[in-house]
């Protein structure tokens, strides 16, 4: 039996990047905070470039705990949506994510979010990665951690529970 040709790499990247862009660019608050996502295969890293408006303590100066909290929550929700949609992105089933006008799939909703502040956030770029510990049909549990210069020295970590959107067509 003849094997089908693998998809050209540019096409694969284009499809995945279009899906990620559709997911992220539609949320005003992500734009407001200036958060972007760096993609390597299916791995996402949230990037929150330093900005004056993220400061909470002008004397130190340090990032506001609320900015860090929002960054972690955004990374958790996008990371969870991304893993939920991955199979449909790969199969091409998600037209909405490929740049058409079809509505975007609904996002998971936060039930609770628990943050540990480990170090003060310095006035520089921050990075975060989410790990979906469990993703069921109705609920999901996600862990996320953020760092700046040194990944082994996280500034904050969080874990949260989410209600998954109904996906019955």
């Amino acid at each position: 039996m003849a094997r089908s040709q693998p998809e050209p790499v540019q096409q694969v990247k284009k499809r995945r990047d279009a899906a990620l862009n559709a997911l992220v660019s539609g949320v005003p608050y992500i734009q407001f905070l200036g958060i972007t996502f760096d993609r390597r295969g299916d791995e996402l890293t949230g990037v929150m470039p330093f900005d004056e408006k993220l400061i909470g303590n002008p004397l130190l100066p340090a990032l506001h705990g609320g900015a860090t909290a929002a960054f972690l929550e955004v990374t958790a929700i996008i990371g969870l949506s991304w893993s939920m949609l991955w199979d449909d992105i790969e199969s091409g089933a998600l037209e909405a994510l490929a740049g058409s006008d079809a509505p975007l799939p609904k996002l998971p909703k936060t039930i609770d979010f628990t943050l540990d502040y480990l170090r003060s956030g310095l006035p520089r770029d921050a990075y975060a990665r989410a790990h979906v510990t469990r993703s069921g049909r109705r609920y999901a549990s996600v862990h996320v951690s953020a760092w700046q210069d040194n990944k082994a020295r996280p500034i904050a970590q969080a874990s949260g529970h989410f209600v998954m959107p109904r996906r019955d067509g």
């Binding site: 539609g26 949320v27 005003p28 608050y29 992500i30 734009q31 407001f32 905070l33 506001h64 705990g65 609320g66 900015a67 909290a69 929002a70 960054f71 929550e73 955004v74 509505p103 975007l104 609904k106 996002l107 936060t110 979010f113 943050l115």
Partner: peptide, 20 residues
Amino acid sequence: IRFIGDPETGVIHGGAVSAL
């Protein structure tokens, strides 16, 4: 409108509520 987390409903992002 800059704080919206769900563009479909216009609901504020949980992150903004967390910051508050």
